[in-house]
Design a protein around this nucleic acid. Sequence first.
RNA 1: GUGGCUAUAGCUCAGUUGGUUAGAGCACUAGAUUGUGAUUCUAGGGGUCGCGGGUUCGAGUCCCGUUAGCCACCCCA
Length: 442
Amino acid sequence: MIEPRTLKGFRDHLPAQALARERILDVARQVYRSFGFAPIDTPALEYLEILTGKGSAETDKQLYRFTDHGGREVGMRFDLTVPFARFCAQHIASLGTPFKRYHMATVWRGENTQRGRYREFMQCDFDTIGTTSPVADLETVLVVHDLLAAIGIERFTIRINDRRVLGGVLASLGLADRATDVLRSLDKLGKATRDAVKAELIGHGVVADAVEKLLKMAELSGSMADVLAGLESLVADSESGRAGVAALRAILDGVQAAGVAEGRVVVDPSIARGLDYYTGIVLESFLDDLPTLGSICSGGRYDNLAGLYTKQALPGVGASLGIDRLLAGLEELGKLSAVETPAEVFLVFFDEAHLADYLRVASALRAAGMAVEFFPEAKRVGQQLKVAAKKGFPAALVIGSDEFAAGTAQFKNLATQQSTTIDWHGDLHVLVDAVRSQMVSR
RNA sequence: GUGGCUAUAGCUCAGUUGGUUAGAGCACUAGAUUGUGAUUCUAGGGGUCGCGGGUUCGAGUCCCGUUAGCCACCCCA
C-alpha cells in the first residue's frame, strides 16, 4: 500500500474549509466587479525566463522549476504580478488603458512553511494599469477596505505609506544607495525591538544621527494630521518627498469622503514593503486581533509594470488579498463556520414507496432556487436527522406516508429542533412557497 | 536554506527508573427502538506508537537519521 500523504506546505481542503474559502472568493469577486475590475486568467506555467527575469535571488530560489517533455525550461508562477506584466506586454494594445483587472489563482513558492505560510496558496489580485491618477491610488485603498469589510472582518487596519516619502528622507540623510537595506530594517519595527533595529541600521553603515532621524520618522504617532505634519518637516527639502506626503493626505481625505470609518486607514511611516518595484503609495492590512499573522492584503503603486517585456511604459497600482493566510487567521480566531454543506434543506428519505414524490418535491424546491439534499437511503429517520444536524443543515423537511396522505409536511428547524406543519394539499407551489418563507423567518 | 520544539486511535490526551497482549474520554458502526437529533444500556470496528535504523534479554519510553507540523532567522500573502 502507498502511504497517502501530501507534500510539505501543500494541503487538502475539506468541505468546511473549502466552503469558507469559496465564500471569501465570492465576496472578493463581487467587490472587485463592483469597482469595474474585469477577470482574467493566465497559465500556471510560464517560460522560466519570464519568471526569473525580474525576480531577486530570493524569488529565484523559491521558484518551482523543471524541464518539460519538449525540453523547455519552465517555472510555476510564484505570484500573479509577473504573469500579469507579461500578459500586459502581449495584450495591452488590444485592451487599451486604463485597464482594470482582477485575478484569483493559485501560486507556488518553495520556501519554508509556517503558520499562514504555505507552498501552495491563492492570491486575489486586482490592479489598475495605464494611469498615474491619484484617484486610482485612492480606489485601491477603497477596494481593500470594502473587501475586508464585506468578508465580515470587524477589526482590521489598513496601513499606508508612500515610497517617495521614504525616498525623500533617505536622500536627505545621504542613504539613497542603501535604501533597500535600510527600509527592510525599519520594516521590522514593531516585530523586533527598537534596539535590534538600531543595531541593524548601524550595521548597514548608518551614522548615529541618521539612525535617530529614521527612527523618529518611523515612530511618528498621534493624530493623522500630526503624523503628516511630522513627515512634511522631514521631507521639506525633497520635492518628491513632499509629493508623497500630499498623496497620503489626498488618500486620507478621499477615504473620509467615501465614508470609511475613522481609524480603518492610517498612515504608518514604518510600512516599507520589501518588494523594490513600488514607487508610490504602499499599503498593508492587518487583523487587529492577530497582528503577528502579518499582512493579509498588500499592494502599492509601481511606475513600470512590464519594462522587462515591452518598451511601453505601464504605470499602475494594485493589491493582493492572501486568502489562505486570512483563512488561517480567521480559523485561529474561531471565526470560521463548521458547516459542511452548501445546501439549505435536508429532505428526509422516509418511505421508499414515495420515491417519485420526493424527487418531485426536491426538483420543485431546486427550481425555486433552494439547494436541497435528498438523502439517498431510506434509513431510520433519527439517523438521517443526526447526519443533517451534524453537517450543519439549517432545516430538514420530513414527509412520511402519513404526511403524504394528509397533504402535509414537517418543516424542522435543525438548530432549535422545532417543527412546524405545512399544509400543501399536494400542491407543490404551496409547498415551495411555505418552505421558502420558513427559511427566511428561521 | 539555517537553528529550536513537537509527533501515541478520526479528535483531545494518559502510558511509571526501559518490562506481559498499548489505554481513557469523545467520535464512529450495529442493536434495544421498521416515525424524529437527547439520555441510557448492550455489542463492535479502529493504533506498523510519524517513518527507518541502532543500543538492549526486552524500546511507545534511550540514541542517530528522516518526514511532517509549529516557532525564530530570511522573505512574504
